[in-house]
Design a protein around this nucleic acid. Sequence first.
DNA 1: CGTGGCGTTGAGGTCTTTCAACGAGAGTGG
DNA 2: CCACTCTCGTTGAAAGACCTCAACGCCACG
Lengths: 239, 239
Amino acid sequence: MEAKAPRLATACKARVLCEECAVRGLAVCGALAQGELPSLAAIAVSKRLEAGQMLFHEGDPAEDVFTLTDGSLKLYKLLADGRRQIMGFLFPGDYLGLAVSRSYVCSAEALGPVTVCRFPRRSFMRLLDEFPALEKELLDRASSELAAAQEQMLLLGRKTARERVASFLVSMADRQDVEDTAPVDLPMNRADIADHLGLTIETVSRALTGLRAKGLIELPDKHHFRILNRAGLEEATAS
Amino acid sequence: MEAKAPRLATACKARVLCEECAVRGLAVCGALAQGELPSLAAIAVSKRLEAGQMLFHEGDPAEDVFTLTDGSLKLYKLLADGRRQIMGFLFPGDYLGLAVSRSYVCSAEALGPVTVCRFPRRSFMRLLDEFPALEKELLDRASSELAAAQEQMLLLGRKTARERVASFLVSMADRQDVEDTAPVDLPMNRADIADHLGLTIETVSRALTGLRAKGLIELPDKHHFRILNRAGLEEATAS
DNA sequence: CGTGGCGTTGAGGTCTTTCAACGAGAGTGG
DNA sequence: CCACTCTCGTTGAAAGACCTCAACGCCACG
């Protein structure tokens, strides 16, 4: 299940690295000159997960950092009695485990088949010293993650169920930036959505039904939706 | 209301800088050698605010970064209809506005009299290139802020009112790391606590009364509490 | 064709909110 | 010194949003 990614060992072109391996996830194409890429590539190892498998658990020693190259993941925390809060969903290009703390603060689980690229944390951190541009990139990402987390706090603390679901749909559509009216993929199930929005599956279902009844969205099947009235849906988010 | 901080212009000792000006907020004592401090100090300007005054508003162009040297601040976001979510409270030593985005993502308001140290963002960012250790420090802080935000998401999404209030009290006590049974300061009012925990002031009040009735805390006055039973209070957080 | 997982819908219950009244304390001014 | 007012916090009662429990339908799978 874990094998040296063949492409990475070879001195390939930056473009190839970017598109085909984890380096894409870090968007270092701009940050690193072509000649510098191999030193990052040399420490990368690809890894595959099936649906439901864990990449790591909250509290595990954070020995690796990852970039997601294919599939999607959920990041969550649990309370002692099993209540769950999903912090977010990750898609190709996103990174994981870059928190500086010594152990992972969330658990990471595959939503479907997933490919990640693994970097031993120590080697990765050494690279930061070598390539300051990489560190800047990380800081950028950390601060946009923080902004997203604050948006989510606003949602969880102050929005109604319907506003939460509408906000979630808009953000999913934006992340997949397909054209309007194109179907948007929902790789997670209703329980995941509920645990992301601080609701129950029934309330999520009712909110979706409500938005559909208002003519704002269409629900072709349980893993897709289509925005019929973008302005109306955005209004329903209460931004 | 805005004056060149006298100490900063002088080539003072690192220790003095650390304790008496904003540089303390960045904890760069370790990061910067003594000889390097003046270049940071040279661009700092101190600023004072009274209770209720705004340091900046959400959406304003983020022209400065700040460190809080005295007093406390709240950071919040608003919905169009006025609903408010407080992202967190800041105490001396904390920094503000370091997000890489071009505008502030939250509003910052003084809880009481406040002194901050202001750095023009451009100059500050130039310093990052000069002193990589400063950048590491920032990355550290960003990732621990992110961890705190995730803890708060868990609270907002999945905890009951009483659990939220108990969690809040524990975290306030921890941040002020006074010995157990010592009174802990609550510089914010009930409305601020409510907007931080995603509740109403009445529910916060009832939860506090409930915790007191259980003998877990004491409420000597409205701006202080005392932990009578630390283990019990932590149990009530449902962590 | 039965089974199990998943999503939807309905009915009733609960926790938090909303609305309202009250009290304590600070500040003001006569 | 004492009304007077205003803000803030607490408490009670009623209302409401979401949750819980239950039934049902759909679909994939064996």
